[in-house]
Simulated scan of single mutants.
Amino acid sequence: MPKNSRPTLTTGQGFSAAPDSEREGRVSGHVLKALRRAVGHTQESLAERIGVDVSTLQGWESGRRPLMAVSTGQYFRLRHLLHRLGAAPRLLTQLDTALEADRFLGYVLGAGRTVDLESHPLATWVITRPFTDLVAWPFIGVAPAVLAETGSSVRRGPTGSGPELAADERQHISAHLRAAAEQASRDTVKGSLLRRQAHYVTGFDTSAETAEWLAVMQGAEKRRLRAAAEWSPSWAVVRSGAHSLARKGDTEALPEFIDAHVSTDACETANLNYWAYWLGEVADPQLADTFMVELDVDAWRGDRMLNHLTGKLDPANPYVDIVVHSLWALIIRKPGLLDDRNAASTTPIVLRLLDEGTVSQRSRRELEAVLYALRMAQRR
């Protein structure tokens, strides 16, 4: 493709949207299978406990009989039974979120070339990390951590180790999301939300066409966002775009974003608030990206964020620069988070990363400031 040409939006060859495609079940089916295995039941024994034919349970787990098609009463009976059998609440929450992920996949697979910009699922709420992990699963083949920890979601069998997408389905989803991002309004909060989230989810597609499109889109977004500008919904689009490019191997995307676009109090606040939402410190669902600057940073604790960020201080992490910057900003804003115990456990991690010498100069300066704060905390 010529250097300056724009990647075209085309659906998969031979793909046709099924009229009942909102009755999607592949993600929730695999989560249900992980839950069944976690509570130590076979398909036959669990089907007997539920009071359904084993073929019905097999259909739910395979996605052939979408779980979202059952009655609300039947779903809650299943959920309550799994809870009584010992399923952890975190896993049961994953099942609820998997239904939302299936609804999203079904909506996109059933959508034609025209994008409904008002009712699109990515225009109606700020998606969460659990939802995104489940949507990414059939693209990247990596189970969400909460499922992988059970050891039950990765076993292989006749139905595969996880939800899968056929090649034409992947192409259709990617083309649809690219169209949504390109058609969404750049002048409204809702349009920016759709643009940002479609941009981000598209990044899970591994095709070369999508990688080139992401780079083109990010360049266009950055030109619209002035360097050192105050926060705007477009800022959030560029932030997500930088993360997508980093995931694709662009080592300059995040350092450039931090240097150019995280230089004001509002943008620092937005970055921290988004982390808090992403990691579940902010429990309430958000309807627009404006929460990033409207939410008081003191409204959430930060313990979960501190633990997450210190656990991601790894030179192999493609997001390491934004992790370092966010950790530095979090400690400045909430110094009381540091105590003897977490300071002692974090110090060697920071020292190892400094010794690696692989992070940017800015990250190195921020790590040195973090190290100073950790040592001061140990002396208190």
Rank of each mutant, 00 (worst) to 15 (best):
P158S: 15
K3Q: 01
R379N: 02
C267G: 00
A148N: 12
A98S: 09
L81F: 00
S119F: 13
F131I: 03
L134P: 10
Y319H: 09
D168M: 09
W125G: 15
G336S: 03
D102A: 05
P348N: 09
A288F: 13
A260K: 08
H308T: 14
V320H: 02
R84E: 12
L105G: 01
T188P: 08
E256R: 07
I127N: 11
R223C: 04
D53G: 06
Y372H: 12
T347Y: 08
R23F: 13
N307C: 01
L354P: 03
Q197E: 09
L85P: 11
L254Q: 13
A180H: 02
D187L: 14
G86D: 11
T310K: 02
P318C: 10
V146W: 00
Y319R: 10
T210Y: 06
E44D: 06
T114I: 07
L85M: 07
S28D: 01
E100G: 07
V320T: 05
L91Q: 13
E281M: 03
T210G: 00
T56R: 08
R36E: 09
T132S: 07
F204N: 01
G25K: 04
G311C: 06
A17D: 11
L351R: 15
R84H: 00
G151Y: 04
R77N: 02
R65L: 15
L337G: 05
R223T: 14
R224H: 08
A220I: 14
Q13T: 14
I258T: 05
G51Q: 07
L287Y: 13
D298G: 06
Y274L: 09
S363N: 02
V52Y: 05
D296L: 10
A101R: 10
T72A: 00
L134A: 12
L254W: 00
P233E: 06
P2G: 14
N307R: 12
V320N: 02
A17V: 00
N342Y: 14
A229S: 15
P19A: 15
G162D: 03
A220D: 12
P89M: 09
W328P: 00
F15A: 13
G241I: 03
S363D: 05
V216R: 11
N307A: 13
A145S: 15
N271H: 11
A145P: 04
T310C: 11
G86L: 09
G40Q: 11
D298F: 07
L85K: 04
P255S: 05
L353P: 03
D289L: 14
A179G: 15
P2V: 12
S185Y: 05
V297C: 10
L81V: 07
R195V: 00
S244H: 04
E294F: 00
S207A: 09
D355G: 13
V189W: 01
P315M: 02
A34T: 06
T132C: 12
E61W: 08
L351V: 15
S185L: 05
D102V: 09
A18C: 12
G110P: 05
E100C: 02
F139R: 03
V237P: 01
S345M: 13
V31S: 12
S345W: 14
D259K: 08
L9R: 15
Q13R: 15
E22A: 08
A17P: 06
A69C: 11
E24F: 14
